[in-house]
Every structure is written in structure tokens, then in C-alpha cells.
Design a binder for these strands. Sequence first.
DNA 1: TAGTGGTCTAGACCACTTC
DNA 2: AAGTGGTCTAGACCACTAA
Lengths: 247, 247
Amino acid sequence: MHEVKAMTNILYMTVVEDLKDKIMKGIYQPGDMLKSESEMMKEYSVSRMTLRKSLSLLSNAGYIYSVPGKGHFVCEPETDLYQFRFQDYDSLDCEIDKIKLTSVKIEDTGDKVRDLLGGGVTGKNVVLERMAFCAKNPVAIEMVYFPYVPHEPVIEEKLHFANYPKALETRNLFALKKELSVQLVDVPEEVGEKLQCNQGEPVFLITKKVRKKDTNAIISVSKFYIKKEYFSIKAFTPEEDDSKKIF
Amino acid sequence: MHEVKAMTNILYMTVVEDLKDKIMKGIYQPGDMLKSESEMMKEYSVSRMTLRKSLSLLSNAGYIYSVPGKGHFVCEPETDLYQFRFQDYDSLDCEIDKIKLTSVKIEDTGDKVRDLLGGGVTGKNVVLERMAFCAKNPVAIEMVYFPYVPHEPVIEEKLHFANYPKALETRNLFALKKELSVQLVDVPEEVGEKLQCNQGEPVFLITKKVRKKDTNAIISVSKFYIKKEYFSIKAFTPEEDDSKKIF
DNA sequence: TAGTGGTCTAGACCACTTC
DNA sequence: AAGTGGTCTAGACCACTAA
């Protein structure tokens, strides 16, 4: 029907570009129905499978959705969703030059976090405490709780690795999901002493829960207390990265 | 070749489930190469296009990637990426019962943020200030900066809408991307007075920049000062939502 | 009943990697 | 030269929606 100036010589990409362009420019508005597949096949002179490859890409990128028997429609854009990375000590606003394991305990009673963990085989939890230093000053303290498994004893040496928490999460990262809670709290007395904070000083409390995707069971809970000067977040609206996609 | 117990009667989904399962269980580890397409076609008794539909889904979900001429490989999982929503006043940790427009100005000199906006046609910027109240107490103050466009005057009435900032972003939400910076700062004197904070009290400062996707030009900059008790973040590892996908 | 999107196939040609 | 993934086609049958 009409000519479409192509940035690529790949058919389905020219269709994607044209439709995305029409959506970007507002020619298609959220809620609008696109032309039918048979119409678009003629318009772009492509086969049905090729056209649907294009529609699939636009769908994955959040531009369109489809309703069987009716047609393809423009999405309401997701504008309030942000992404950021949190890599434990690597995400602090300073160069961490030392991480020190300050305590390893096994608790079986009276711990509030115990319930969260859902109880291991024995009902006992390992509680591990580490501190992060920057220029010899303590900037963060971390408490990690996870079920104690008798036959997989925690090796102290392993704990010294800066990225040890990952080791806890490991086995298979694909099977896990995580939650993060970021808030500001008055520093608990015990933590304040170790971090050399004034009484009642606000500090960041970041709580990280690691769960199994399938059962939702909690693998570990970490509590990071971070001096308020040493944490901030930069988050971004997700962008499509057309790289490494198969279709 | 062998039987695959299917949760669905859709061929490509049974392939997706089987491969995802093998990855979840660690039978395929990150970096491992999958069997070739022709092998998998035989294994699952599906056509090439159907198999590739499955691989496409797994690729989009971040499980695999492919290298032309070589094969399909298991990804290194993205484990430190988190998502959250920030919807301006709706994201505060209290019920906002009033939003008050406290100031509308047009500035053309001496403003640090002016550079960020990249200058409108006239080089002038609209600066708008609003305050959010909870039970009659001020909890947040917001300064929005955006280019002043003579022929699209800012209508005061519109500013009173709680979601007015969206109106600024509008035209076409698809064409925009945003950045968010969350940090803790000592409250500036002027802001402290309005928020009824003590001198030097820490407050959240959230800076939101809205940009055009294509040119990267800044549409608006917002600075939210929020009393420290009224903001927190809950973020989650992204989950695949197989809903509304075309393939 | 006619039109829509959803699934699936069998085959073709290409560019790339490996030997 | 043989094998791999990447693109593309022309059909087919189905379930769903609408008139």
C-alpha cells in the first residue's frame, strides 16, 4: 500500500518501527485498536507470521496487547515503574575497604525473625553479623538470618568473603526472588554503639528477603543498617533493550 | 523421544515449562549450551517455528540468549535488579488529604535548575511549588521546574489537580522516560520552615527528571522534600507475567 | 456467518561458526 | 562442507467475537 522508510532491512523490524513511531507520535493513542492482521499484512506486504513477530515484540515492550476475536490495542503506558540495582555493600555511597565478620550465632528461640524464616528442619537459625568500613570508619552493619541446616555447616572462612550473602542465595539464582524494603529508622541502641552513631540518630534500614519462587519459602532475611550519609538510590524507567532477543 | 508432562496443551508452553524447569533445577547451569534446535525439534516433536516461539519466550524472560552459528545458552541470572512504583503523592506513607499550590513563578535567570531543562524557546522556566498535608500537617513540599511556553500558558486551576504533574508529562507518555534519585539531606532552611522541621533535620529529597526518549531533552524536573517519617520503598525482583503476551 | 486473533506445520534461503 | 541460528513464506485448523 504505502512506503515505509526502513532503518533496517529486516522486515519485522520495519513493521515494529513504523507502529512504534505511530504510537510515539500519538497517531495511535492508548486504547486505540490497530488495523486487523490481514489488513496490516497487505499494508506492509509481509506474511502473517512475520507480522505477528512484530506484534509480539511490541507486546513484550509494553506497547500493545491483544484480545482474541477482537483485535490489537495500544496499552496504557506504565509510567511510574522504576528499576534500580542493590548489590549489598557495592551499592553504598563510598568505597568499602573492609568487611568484618563480627558474630556468628545459632539461635533457636526468642527471635522475632525466626518466624519469618518459616523454620528450617531443626527450627534453628544461623544469625550472622558483619560490618562494613570506609576509611576505618564503620558505615554499615548487617544481620543475616537463615535456617541452620546441620549437614551443611556454615564455614566461617566463607563468611569473610565480601559477597558471601550471594553464596547463601546461591544453589540456583533462577529459582529465587527477592524483596527489598528501604526505610529510615532511629538507630537501635546496640547498632548505634557499633556504628558510632548518636543516640536516636536516623539510619537507613534495608531489609532484604530472599524467597523461593515456587514455594515462596524464605531462604534468608538480611537487615542492613546504614549510616544515612552512605546510601542513596538512582532508579530509572525500564528501557527496551532489543539486544539478544531471539525474535 | 521422551515424554514431557504438560501443564497445558499448548505445545510451545510445554517446551517452555520443560526447559525452564531444567534451568530452575540446575540441570542447565548459567553458561551451558542447550541442545541444537534440530535436536530439540525431535525431542519435543514440534516444528522449528514452534520451538523457536518457546525459545523466544525464554529469552524474553531472561533465561536464555542465543549466538548465531553457535547455539542457545543459559543466561547469568539478573539477581540484583529491583522494581518499585513511585506515583508522587500516592507513594507517601500516609493519607494525603490536601494538596495546595503555594507558588507559581516564571524565572529566567539565576536558577540552577534552568540549565538542566536545556532551555525552552524563551529560556524561561515555570517554577511551581506545592505542599501535601496529612491531618493538617505538612508532610511534603514539591518544586517543579519546566520550560515556559508562551502559547501554552499554565492554567492555575489545572495546577490544583493532585495529578497535575502527570499533565505536564503528558502529550504522550510512551515518548518519555524518567529518572529518580532518592537521598537523605539536611533540610534547607526555607523548606524547613514550611514543613515545620527543626533546623538541620534530615529529610528525603527525591529528584524526578522527565526526559524525551528520542532527544533526551528534559521535560521537567521535580524536587520532592518529604519528612523522613513519610517515605519508604518496597521493591521487588521483576517477575514474568506471561499474561497478555502474543507469543 | 464472517472476521478476528492463537496455534502449528513444512519448507525455503541466508549468514555465521567450526573444522 | 556441515551445522548452527535468523528470517520469511503460504498455507492450515482452531476458538472467540460480533452481527
